[in-house]
Nucleic acid binder design. Structure first.
Lengths: 122, 122
DNA sequence: GCGACTTCTGAACGATTGTTCATACGTCGA
DNA sequence: TCGACGTATGAACAATCGTTCAGAAGTCGC
């Protein structure tokens, strides 16, 4: 394999996180990479909601909502509080909350950050 | 569709970003959801590197690296500077840079944030 | 110009992911 | 206890994504 700046490559490699750390990071970002889950999480930023209200707020079916919540729950991103036959979900991961806050702040702050339709996306 | 707390649902819906904004956000997170791209971006946090050095630093093939860079370039996340037959890439999106910095800071800060293997992941 | 080299691109394969339908579980009211 | 309701789960399908192989385009040294 060819190298141009071996020193810099070695320095960068040393600064890289562990393989498992990178995998965990990618895992967290994967959870945020789905519009449905993203809407659910944003909805949960301020309020605790039950499944049917979450489905209505996010504009998706209750089954899809339950599946999405199942994944988020498995990754400890949301927590559930049961009251009778209702299930109230809330955001449980401070890490994800900060990522969401940062992302939403950038959304409100400027509209130049992301690509424009038909402009650069492949 | 059944609703438990219609007021709260309406309030949450009003606070949700636009559909296209959510899609753009999910798009950005999708770029960070792949371990290979994540390693490339972290490598680019501090240094400008050519394709072969990036491939070596991230531990992936040059073709795979080029494909990943192509996607990142299409989304304006990285920019390329050409010098002869070499292509030097650098991180171009301040938004993504802050997300990466925040994520890496959390990695260094605590190891309790994410799930443990075989503990909660489905 | 010719050959070596770096990067880029296209196509095909395999794998993973999200969605949907249908159904099962647990809870409340009569 | 029985039916209705909210939620959860399983399976199957479609779609998307990443990787790989092979080859093309452009550049430098001779």
């Amino acid at each position: 394999m060819r190298l141009v700046d071996a020193d810099r490559v070695a320095a960068v490699q040393q600064g890289l996180p562990t393989e498992s750390a990178v995998a965990d990071l990618a895992d967290v970002f994967s959870l945020l990479a789905d519009p449905g889950r993203l809407r659910l999480l944003v909805a949960l930023l301020g309020a605790e909601l039950c499944v049917c209200d979450l489905a209505a707020a996010a504009g998706m079916g209750e089954s899809a909502t339950s599946h999405a919540l199942r994944i988020l729950r498995a990754h400890r991103v949301v927590s559930v509080r049961r009251s009778g036959r209702m299930a109230y979900y809330s955001l449980a991961d401070a890490h994800v909350r900060m990522l969401l806050d940062l992302a939403l702040a950038h959304l409100a702050h400027s509209e130049l950050v992301h690509v424009h339709p038909g402009d650069s996306d492949e």
